[in-house]
Each structure stands twice: as structure tokens, then as C-alpha cells.
């Protein structure tokens, strides 16, 4: 099991945004989280990845608790998130966006930059090759040297996925990878996720587009008003009366 979320809770003021949520992602798993607006999905992501401090509960990655690590530490531990509204480095090119994500670069240390230039250059070549491979895999070659701020919504989602891949993450958390993406590109992104999952990378995906997500994941969790209300195969979860009620907005 790569990720275990145990009884995670968070309240903003009196509002319990995430209420005692537990779920797991198996090694190489492909798991989805659905729920209506305001169900607490994005907050759950922020709690898991350390962008928001949890009130209580634990997060373990490969059996080791990461609850005390800051966001950057959790990412270095192998768990990388993307954002609902893409956060590209707008003034860097697609290639530079990816290269920036490579871990442990000696050229990020000023001392090495000026006193070990040969080692920095050699590593930089490796990073550049790796970025080129990922750009080709994600079919972003045509925009590789375009500033990322000029990309379309779908291309930015792919860019964020590419940056996550550059870090060598074993678990990638995608926050609405299909939101604001044209339908053709949705299928394209789904296909890339399947291929990456085939190589052993785990995914936890939040999504509004139920159709695309249910075709993609093996396990689905449904949230409503901060609570986990259903877990199972996509078909089972979608036919669950509590899930239908949450989505159709029936009287509680």
C-alpha cells in the first residue's frame, strides 16, 4: 500500500470541511475521488500533501508517517500533487518547467555552479534529455519551447503531469485533470495516465467529469460535506443511493 489516509479531519471555523476521512491507495493503484462542489475533495488533497495542516489524523506513505513533513518534504518522499487551477511557471518554457522539477540538481547550489561547472553541465544534459523524453511522451513537442503561460488549459494539465513525472514521484495526486479540457484531449490525458499506471505509478484523482473518471479508475470514493459516503467499484459507487442523493441535491 503506497498511501494510507487515516481519520483525517479539518475544520475552518465551525465548518468541518474534511470529517474523519480514511482511504488507501494500493501500490500502483488508480483511485478516484468524486463528490459535489464543496464536498471537501480539494481540501483533502491539501491535507494529504501538506499544503494545509490537518486538525487530526495521519498520512502514511509506504508505511511511514509523513504527517510532520512540510509540503516540499512530502513531495520529496515521492508524493506529488497537481492543482485544480494549473500553476505553471508562466514565464518559463515547457521544457524549463519540466527541468525545474528534476530533484537534487547540483546547479541549484551556487557553490557548485561556480566551482564545479563541469559536473553541473553534465547533470544538466541528463535532465534535459529526461525532459525531452517526457515532452515526447505527453505529445507536447510542438510547444516545448513556448512559455508555459501561453498553453491551453489541457496542455497546462499535461505540463503539471510532466513536472510530477520529472520528480520521479511514485504517487501522483491529480486535482481535476479534466476540468476545462476539450473532450479530445481528455481521452488523450486518460490514455497517458493508463500508460503511466502500467509502469507502476500510483494515482489518486479528484474529478467532476464522472464519465471520464469512472472509465479510468478501478476504485472510486465518494465524498459529501466532508465525509466519505461510499467506496467501491465505479459502478457500485455511482448506483449508491447516498451518492445519487448528494449529486442530485435531494433533501438530506
Amino acid at each position: 500500500m503506497i498511501l494510507a489516509i487515516e481519520s483525517l479531519s479539518k475544520a475552518f471555523g465551525g465548518l468541518r470541511v474534511v470529517d474523519d476521512v480514511s482511504l488507501t491507495v494500493p501500490d500502483g493503484g488508480l483511485v478516484g475521488v468524486i463528490g459535489p462542489n464543496g464536498a471537501g475533495k480539494s481540501t483533502l488533497f491539501s491535507l494529504v500533501t501538506g499544503f494545509v495542516a490537518a486538525d487530526s489524523g495521519d498520512v502514511t506513505l509506504d508505511g511511514r508517517s509523513v504527517a510532520t513533513l512540510p509540503a516540499s518534504g512530502r513531495a520529496r518522499a515521492g508524493m506529488v500533487r497537481t492543482f485544480q487551477v494549473p500553476r505553471e511557471f508562466a514565464h518559463l518554457t515547457v521544457r524549463e518547467n519540466l527541468m525545474a522539477a528534476a530533484p537534487e540538481q547540483s546547479g541549484e547550489r551556487l557553490f557548485d555552479l561556480f566551482f564545479h561547472p563541469a559536473a553541473v553541465r553534465a547533470q544538466e544534459e541528463g535532465v534535459r534529455r529526461q525532459a525531452t523524453d517526457i515532452i515526447e511522451f505527453l505529445r507536447l513537442t510542438a510547444v516545448a519551447d513556448t512559455p508555459a503561460g501561453r498553453l491551453s488549459g489541457g496542455q497546462k494539465k499535461l505540463l503539471e503531469l510532466g513536472r510530477a513525472l520529472m520528480t520521479g514521484a511514485r504517487l501522483i495526486l491529480l486535482d481535476e485533470p479534466f476540468a476545462g479540457v476539450n473532450p479530445l484531449l481528455i481521452e488523450e490525458i486518460s490514455q497517458r495516465i493508463r500508460e503511466l499506471n502500467g509502469r507502476g505509478i500510483g494515482f489518486l484523482i479528484i474529478e467532476h467529469d464522472l464519465g471520464a473518471l469512472t472509465r479510468l479508475v478501478a476504485t472510486l470514493h465518494a465524498m459529501d460535506r466532508g465525509c466519505l459516503i461510499a467506496t467501491g467499484t465505479p459502478d457500485a459507487v455511482l448506483s449508491n443511493p447516498r451518492v445519487r442523493e448528494a449529486y442530485l441535491g435531494g433533501a438530506a
Binding site: A71, S72, R76, F83, A90, A100, P103, E160, R163
Partner: peptide
Amino acid sequence: DNEDAVKALGKE
């Protein structure tokens, strides 16, 4: 350009 994204990629 985006500090949170830098953190999300494992750099402080």
C-alpha cells in the same frame, strides 16, 4: 511565477 508549485515539486 508560482511558489506553491515549487513546494509541490519538493523544493523549499
